[in-house]
Each structure stands twice: as C-alpha cells, then as structure tokens.
C-alpha cells in the first residue's frame, strides 16, 4: 500500500499542473487572436476618409463622398450696449466703429487698467497682449493679424491660431474643442465649436463650473459626511 502514496502524490501534482497549463494555453491563444485582429489593417483605405477642417478661412469644407465638418461661425463684429432703450423698449446697441470712427485711439492704453473713460472695469487675463494686438485700429469692426492684415470677427480662429499653434493643430485633428454629430464622416456630418464658443477672448481661461450631476450611491446615505 505504501507504494500508493508516491503514486497518489504524483497524480495529484500532475493533475493540478495539467489543469493550470491547459488554462494558461487557452488564455494565451485567445490573447494571440485578440492581438491579431487588433493589428488588422483596413480592408480598403478609401472606405473611411477623415476630413480635417484644415483651413479656418472657409467654415464649411465639402469633399466628395464625405459629409461636411461644420465649424460654428462666430457672430460678426460685437455690438456695444449703450444702456439706452428705444421707443419699443429694446436696448440700443452700437457698432464699435460708431465711437471709434470719431475718436482716434489712445495708443498709450495697453491694459484695461489704464482705460478710465470707456471700457473701464473690463476684466482682462489674456497674457500681456495689448488691445491693438488683436483689435484693428484702422477699422474697429474687424480684427487684425500680427502682420497688420485685416481679419473679420467671423474668422477669429485665424487670429487665435497665430499664437496658439499647438491648440490649433490639436483642433485640426479633432482633439481640441469637442464635437457633435458623427465621428465617421462617411456616414454623417460633424459640428464643431470655434475658439470663442468656449473661450472669452479677454478672459480665455475655461470658466469654473459646479458639478450638477452626481450618482446617488446607496452607501452615500450612510457615509456622505465622513469621506
């Protein structure tokens, strides 16, 4: 009978070993399959053509066989509130040029702090650029690029892109600014924000928010106060 002891012990060990090995092999082979399918190339490169909004000057790009990527266009030149009301009770707003065409700009004003007559109290946290880095002294209803070229308010992204190259590059690749609609342009259109949809040009940092939606986990009833 004592011979049994050795036999049994080795059978136990072998059985366990065999079980473990079989499991590992099957897991390994399923890994290999996964890896294989992951590396699979596109059967036909042309079936999915991704379009990039490469130029901001044109807001809607259409290429054959793909749906458009639409960048929301900023509204035109801003209107300035006058605090007056017309006979219908509507607020009276004026174009920038209404005042600026009659007054020559004070080139001494570089920051909002020195604005004591108009625009006083304006918040400005956009680095050290001055007003006329972006606003066009020749025509206040438009903007200007760093090289002095005029650019419309509706094409503000060209202006932003001068300094914010990396963000612009990300944006062009769909990695900045979010999107709505279709990820696959062969199936449907896509809508994107422009810079000033999310960033106030004078205080460009994304605003703070209050979270409004929280999971009501069961355990919170007991321990919300503690953690």
């Amino acid at each position: 009978m004592s011979g049994w002891r050795g036999v049994i012990t080795s059978v136990i060990l072998l059985a366990m070993l065999a079980g473990v090995t079989a499991t590992m092999q099957i897991r390994a082979s399923s890994d290999a399959e996964d890896g294989g399918s992951g590396a699979e190339a596109l059967p036909d490169g042309s079936s999915v053509i991704h379009e990039k909004p490469s130029a901001v000057s044109s807001n809607t790009l259409v290429q054959p066989e793909t749906f458009p990527v639409t960048v929301r266009k900023p509204s035109g030149p801003p209107r300035v509130a006058t605090n007056l009301k017309d006979i219908h009770g509507e607020a009276v707003t004026v174009a920038c040029s209404t005042c600026h065409s009659t007054r020559s700009p004070n080139l001494q004003n570089k920051t909002p702090h020195s604005l004591d007559e108009f625009h006083s109290g304006m918040k400005f946290t956009h680095g050290t650029v001055s007003c006329l880095s972006c606003h066009n002294a020749a025509d206040y209803d438009s903007l200007q690029l760093a090289d002095g070229h005029r650019v419309e308010f509706t094409d503000v992204m060209t202006l932003c892109g001068q300094c914010h190259g990396p963000q612009m590059k990300d944006y062009e690749h769909g990695v900045h600014g979010g999107l709505n609609g279709y990820w696959d342009l062969s199936r449907g259109p896509q809508q994107k924000n422009n810079c000033v949809d999310c960033h106030n040009p004078h205080t460009p940092q994304f605003p703070k928010m209050q979270p409004t939606f929280k999971p009501k986990d069961r355990f919170l009833e007991q321990s919300r106060s503690e953690h």
């Binding site: 049994w4 049994i8 059978v11 136990i12 059985a15 366990m16 079980g19």
Partner: peptide, 12 residues
C-alpha cells in the same frame, strides 16, 4: 483515491 485528489482540487 480520486476523492483525495478531488478534495485538494476543490479548495485549490
């Protein structure tokens, strides 16, 4: 004897 192996296997 099978039950001996099996007993160890259930807990393993």
């Amino acid at each position: 004897f099978l039950s001996i192996i099996w007993a160890i296997s259930i807990h393993t």
